[in-house]
Amino acid sequence: MTDDSPALTDDPRRELAEFLRTRRTRLRPRDVGLEPGPRRRVAGLRREELALLAGVSSDYYQRMEQGRDVRPSEQVLDALARALNFSAEESRHLHSLAAAARTPARVPRPYVPEEVPPTTERLLRTMTSPALVVGRFLDVLAWSPLAGALLGEFTQRPREERNLLSLFLHPEADQTCPDRAATVAELIGMLRTQVAADPGNPRAVELVGELAVHSDEFAALWARHDVEEPIRGRMRINHPLVGELTLDWDAYPIPGTPGPVLVVCTAAENTPDAERLQLLAGLLGPAR
Score class of each variant (00 low, 15 high):
71 R>L: 01
161 E>S: 10
77 L>Q: 10
154 F>Y: 10
142 A>S: 05
78 D>H: 05
126 T>W: 10
82 R>V: 01
126 T>G: 04
79 A>W: 01
75 Q>C: 02
142 A>E: 07
95 H>C: 12
69 D>W: 14
136 R>C: 09
123 L>I: 13
72 P>E: 00
121 E>M: 03
97 L>K: 02
107 V>C: 12
151 L>I: 06
114 E>F: 01
98 A>N: 12
78 D>K: 00
128 T>Q: 13
124 L>E: 00
88 A>I: 06
83 A>T: 07
160 E>K: 09
103 T>L: 03
152 G>E: 11
154 F>R: 10
105 A>H: 14
70 V>R: 09
134 V>T: 05
88 A>R: 14
140 V>Q: 12
155 T>V: 15
69 D>H: 14
123 L>H: 08
138 L>V: 07
67 G>W: 12
148 G>Q: 11
92 R>L: 08
122 R>L: 11
112 V>P: 02
105 A>Q: 15
135 G>V: 03
113 P>N: 09
158 P>S: 12
119 T>Y: 14
64 M>P: 02
157 R>F: 02
97 L>P: 07
126 T>I: 02
155 T>C: 15
112 V>A: 03
119 T>F: 13
144 S>I: 09
64 M>N: 10
72 P>W: 06
165 L>W: 11
107 V>D: 15
89 E>M: 10
72 P>K: 02
139 D>I: 01
90 E>C: 08
99 A>E: 11
142 A>T: 08
154 F>W: 09
122 R>M: 07
136 R>Q: 14
162 R>C: 00
121 E>I: 09
62 Q>I: 08
88 A>F: 03
108 P>L: 00
141 L>H: 08
72 P>D: 01
162 R>S: 00
92 R>S: 08
73 S>P: 12
90 E>H: 09
147 A>M: 05
72 P>V: 04
159 R>A: 15
73 S>C: 10
109 R>K: 06
101 A>T: 06
102 R>P: 00
145 P>Q: 10
88 A>Q: 12
119 T>W: 15
151 L>F: 15
103 T>W: 03
113 P>E: 05
108 P>R: 06
157 R>M: 05
130 P>V: 00
113 P>Q: 10
93 H>S: 03
100 A>T: 11
106 R>Y: 07
157 R>L: 13
150 L>I: 10
